[in-house]
């Protein structure tokens, strides 16, 4: 039915967003390992890069199954999106916490902190998963391809 088309869209979009996450994860690692120069003063740490790589990896590993039209293929964009949104929420909270430290409390440890420091890939990549959420919602809630329990 229509499903095949949606699966194909999901496959290509997963590949796209997965590679993006992968790219940023790699950058984080390269900056951390001092291979690349940190001109924009990104916050780059090992675990953050790891997270991005894993999310990218999950997206990408689902592509083949999605192209084959397997229902189980849906798990990959599903879980990757959940993870990316979870991590985005976390960093949003940290952003807010840091702002409070800087503006409200005026903590010296935070002198020289800027909002830029806290705009991380986890945050700005997350909205890109909107289309995936919509497609998954359509398949699962509306079409009931999978029991929403």
């Amino acid at each position: 039915m229509e499903y095949e088309k949606i699966f194909k869209i999901l496959a290509f979009y997963s590949a796209f967003i997965g590679l993006l996450y992968f790219y940023f994860g790699l950058i984080q690692w390269l900056i951390f390992l001092k291979v690349l120069k940190n001109n924009l003063h990104f916050s780059a740490d090992l675990m953050s890069g790891f997270t991005l790589l894993v999310i990218g990896g999950i997206y990408v590993s689902g592509v083949k199954r999605l192209l084959d039209g397997e229902i189980k293929g849906l798990s990959y964009p599903l879980v990757a999106t959940i993870l990316s949104l979870g991590v985005a929420l976390l960093f949003l909270l940290i952003l807010v916490a840091n702002s409070i430290e800087y503006y409200v409390i005026g903590n010296e440890d935070y002198a020289g902190w800027t909002i830029i420091q806290d705009i991380r890939p986890e945050l700005f990549l997350a909205p890109l998963s909107m289309p995936i959420i919509y497609l998954l919602w359509k398949l699962i809630i509306k079409e009931k391809l999978v029991k929403p329990i």
């Binding site: 999950i58 229902i71 189980k72 849906l74 798990s75 990959y76 599903l78 879980v79 990757a80 959940i82 699962i140 999978v146 029991k147 929403p148 329990i149």
Partner: peptide
């Protein structure tokens, strides 16, 4: 019924 559940999907990766 033997359809997959959302839980099954998530577990597949988790």
């Amino acid at each position: 019924e033997t359809t997959l559940t959302l839980t099954d999907l998530i577990d597949h990766v988790v």
